[in-house]
Amino acid sequence: MSDKTLRTHTDTVGAEGLDDWRWMLRALHARFRTGDFVTGLRLATAIAEAAEEMDHHPDLDLRYPHLNVRLSSHDVGGVTDRDLRLARRISELAAGVGVAADPSAVQVLELALDTADLEGVRPFWLAVLGMSETASPDELVDKGGSLPTLWFQETDPHDEPRQRFHVDITVPPEVAPGRIEAALAAGGTLVSAAREPAFTILADAEGNKACVCTSAGRD
């Protein structure tokens, strides 16, 4: 298999023994509980050196007291063997400095806009948010990583008022049931579980919807 061959989540994290990592939205994600900023910086530096050696570079987000890492092969738009090897190396580096991963803490936020006129509204959002196009016509991304992905969901024409945006929050499969339970306990309602575990549709007390999503059940 070529280094640039896309992998699917069904043959990746579990089969490769990458217990620190979770597959979400065409990338591998991990959070390492560094405990303090200096340790986080030390780990980030070690990762940078390993990335240079492998000529493959992750996205690093250093916070107090953790380091978030995202791995994806941008040239092919998903996870490849390069990401698997670097993920394994990063886990080794973290273990070497006594830092544990917290897979349950990783999550990815997306915004979805209901529209009956994709071609009519898409150029506006592309311009006003300064985002970039992808191979998918219904998706816009911020290549700098500051903004969540914006995607467009087809709907029928309608008059206002009606909810147009909804939130998609992607979490590890083992986290989703607890997140859903907490949302329901907080006054939410279950709109549909027909597509779980891929996604579960919830609504708040006013009917505003949000989807709790996982990689399970998706390609």
Rank of each mutant, 00 (worst) to 15 (best):
R82S: 01
E16G: 01
E49H: 14
D59G: 10
N208W: 13
G145S: 08
A198W: 09
H56S: 05
A182K: 10
E181T: 09
L150V: 12
D204K: 03
I90D: 07
V175L: 05
R26S: 13
T8P: 04
G35Q: 01
V212A: 10
G130L: 00
F124L: 13
A87W: 00
P161T: 10
D61F: 12
A112T: 09
L84T: 00
D117K: 06
L140R: 00
V108S: 07
D83Q: 04
M1A: 06
A30C: 11
Q153I: 11
A51V: 04
L150W: 07
W125R: 10
Q107T: 09
P173V: 10
A112R: 14
A193V: 11
F165A: 09
G217A: 07
W151A: 12
S72K: 11
P103Q: 07
V69H: 00
T189E: 15
T115F: 08
L140G: 02
A94F: 11
A194R: 12
A95M: 08
A216Y: 04
T10G: 07
D156K: 15
A95R: 15
R26T: 09
V106R: 06
T189M: 14
K209I: 15
H56A: 14
P157A: 06
H166E: 04
A116R: 07
T12L: 02
D61G: 04
M1K: 09
T39R: 14
L190S: 14
R85G: 01
V108P: 06
V141Y: 01
T200K: 10
G187I: 02
R89I: 07
P58K: 07
E181W: 03
F199T: 10
R85F: 00
S104R: 06
E119W: 11
L25C: 06
M24S: 07
H74R: 14
T214D: 01
S72P: 03
R89W: 12
G78Y: 01
L118D: 11
L126R: 15
L28C: 05
T149F: 06
A203D: 07
L140N: 06
G17R: 04
K4V: 09
D168K: 04
R22A: 06
